[in-house]
């Protein structure tokens, strides 16, 4: 039996798995790790996620934006990692994900304060996202007046912003006659 000769050539290849962890290669796509400190709550990951593992929901009563990943649904494609502007979510090399009894243990949640629109008072974005964009404007190196002018638009929700733009336009037109 030639096959036995072939089998003899190599010694045992079975690994002592749970004791000696299986080594993954560079660039392995494992469990996405979430960093609450870096997260802005922008929701880019939730839009990109093909399997709806990442969700961002508004909790209007508590004024919070609830970011949640459900590892039960995750397919480890790494789209969230690609689109995240602040690297708040990135794939790790971890692949053992077992929980006992409670499926909720396989979820990670982050809650962020929502920001109200200055005009209509409805929640429209997170405080963190507002601050992030504001700081970006400052880092662009404009003077105070320009920054204030530009930041004015940040304080309103998209609906109000649209309304204001129309109003401004109408005002300009009527002034001109």
């Amino acid at each position: 039996m030639k096959i036995l000769e072939f089998a003899k050539k190599e010694k045992m290849v079975t690994r002592d798995f749970p004791v000696v962890p299986y080594e993954v290669t560079e660039g392995f796509r494992g469990k996405p790790e979430y960093s609450y400190e870096k997260c802005l709550g922008c929701g880019a990951c939730a839009v990109a996620c093909p399997s709806n593992a990442v969700t961002v929901k508004k909790d209007e009563e508590r004024g919070l934006s609830v970011w949640k990943i459900d590892y039960n649904r995750c397919i480890f494609c790494g789209r969230c990692d690609e689109v995240c502007p602040t690297e708040a979510i990135s794939l790790s090399k971890q692949y053992v994900m077992c929980v006992l009894f409670d499926k909720e243990d396989l979820t990670v949640t982050g809650e962020m304060k929502l920001r109200k629109c200055d005009s209509c008072g409805r929640y429209y974005s997170t405080e963190r996202l507002y601050n992030y964009v504001y700081n970006k404007l400052i880092s662009a190196g404009w003077d105070r007046a320009t920054i204030d002018e530009k930041a004015k638009h940040l304080k309103f929700c998209p609906d109000c912003r649209r309304e204001q733009a129309i109003n401004n336009y109408v005002n300009q037109m009527t002034k001109r006659g």
């Binding site: 993954v24 290669t25 660039g27 392995f28 796509r29 397919i75 480890f76 494609c77 790494g78 794939l91």
Partner: peptide, 12 residues
């Protein structure tokens, strides 16, 4: 497959 795609299956 792991070297190519980062997973034991050629996914993603």
């Amino acid at each position: 497959a792991q070297i190519l795609t980062g997973g034991r299956k050629t996914y993603g």
